[in-house]
Design a protein around this nucleic acid. Structure first.
Lengths: 259, 259
DNA sequence: TGCGTGTGTGCAACATATGCATAGACTACG
DNA sequence: CGTAGTCTATGCATATGTTGCACACACGCA
């Protein structure tokens, strides 16, 4: 609606990709050099853009400062709730949201399709790392160093026959889960309960939370549950997108770590 | 220079602090509601701003995505070089820049005041974690978990009489260093060489690099070296600022970790 | 029912953003 | 040394685009 602002934002997006020279920016915007220069000056005066030694422009400290500060203030629950509700309505099952806190996973939100009123049954409950779909979804995208550290002195308590009882077994599961993008928990924690789960990722690719669909085996077969995977992934990708995660990753998905 | 763009950026900054309602934004900008609405629409259409369920606005995914992507592309060397050169000119001593890579600290840049031509003597060299000012500067702001992990099976080799030979001794040093904002290395690594160092921090408060001033004890006394601390801190704070770090921290410096 | 809020759209007035010309500073290059 | 190619910067006339206002609608709430 506002042309000038729109052009300014376009400049920010162009510089977000890579540093650029002024001629390039003017050409992309299809405006005169002097117009581009004026926009750049305004952006620079507010610190959104920085001019490097080679006179090219790149994004400036205000972008980093504001983005980080705003991210801090965001509550994953608020962000995830709409998509969780939609997901629950589509599949008709219970949807959980959990985050990693310290050395355990905590459930922080729950939506039950059947009961419009939220039931806080499991809210605040903690889950063992090695045998719930939700915890595994977070683990599978966790930085390997951190993951190894968490699992190092973890108690692999056997809750059922299906529970992983060794780090090797769990890591193998995590590797295969990461490849297909979601985790399964077929009665590993509770007999008669199975679930699927996927991680919510931030802009830097780290897992901010996990979302799971769980159901009793008595009502839903494994096959039917797995049919919900596409909807689950759509939901987690939508939530991740809100946190800046780009679904389309460049082929070279191994990126620099520093800064 | 450009009023509309300037107002748009102001909106971004206002929303960076906290989510706000449209009336509040219009009031802050001193413009009509409809004008604020038009700006918000433009910002929203580009994803810079997101409207929550309660109809308030907050920063949107584009900010997170662009900021993160731009940060990835930034080379700390380019960022630090100008301030390193200025620092070196002011104090007349050698200034190093180093980063943590894996389990060691690597020197990636060096400026010698005496010799205008850069000497790559130590560039690429690695430093032991427990006895150089630069490594200690990074360690002192590192996430405690990560730090403990690094020091867990670290070899506390004694290079001189002053070298820390135990984790306890080093951690004690780090604590005191963190309180005053810089580290010292009085011949802990090389006899006849002492230095001071301080960390470069990113928006989330993590150390991206370290900067040190080192000199031979034969030419510079401890006292004279310590007089350079203010200049050193000004330099590291300037570099940190480029990465989005806000020097003025809120009193509650302990912030949430999630997202 | 009225009130406060946010949303949205014409439209006239005019503030302002634009393109162009021009010029200085600087670098690279032959 | 001149030439060409950058980026920077400013003045100015034009007309484009932005603004404020009026007005209307939707919604939640007392």
């Amino acid at each position: 609606m506002s042309q000038t602002l729109h052009r300014g934002l376009l400049v920010i997006e162009l510089l977000g990709e890579r540093p650029r020279r002024i001629a390039e920016i003017a050409e992309e915007l299809e405006v005169h050099h002097s117009t581009a220069l004026r926009l750049l000056h305004t952006l620079r005066s507010e610190g959104f853009v920085h001019q490097q030694d080679d006179s090219r422009y790149r994004l400036g400290s205000s972008m980093f400062r504001l983005a980080h500060h705003a991210l801090e203030g965001i509550d994953v629950r608020d962000l995830a709730r709409p998509d969780m509700e939609r997901l629950s309505q589509r599949c008709g099952e219970t949807v959980h949201l959990g985050i990693l806190e310290g050395r355990q996973v905590v459930y922080i939100e729950k939506v039950e399709a059947k009961h419009p009123v939220r039931m806080y049954s499991r809210i605040g409950a903690v889950a063992p790392l090695h045998c719930t779909g939700l915890a595994k979804a977070i683990l599978m995208r966790l930085d390997p160093e951190r993951r190894d550290q968490l699992l190092h002195d973890h108690q692999f308590t056997a809750y059922t026959d299906a529970t992983h009882t060794s780090p090797e077994s769990l890591l193998d599961d995590l590797t295969r889960s990461a490849e297909r993008g979601y985790t399964r928990d077929d009665q590993e924690h509770e007999p008669g309960i199975h679930c699927i789960a996927a991680p919510v990722l931030t802009a830097d690719g780290r897992p901010a939370a996990g979302v799971s669909i769980s159901a009793p085996t008595s009502r839903i077969s494994s096959q039917t549950l797995l049919e919900q995977v596409p909807d689950l992934l759509i939901a987690t990708q939508r939530i991740s997108h809100h946190l800046g995660w780009e679904h389309e990753r460049s082929p070279a998905s191994t990126r620099r770590a520093y800064t």
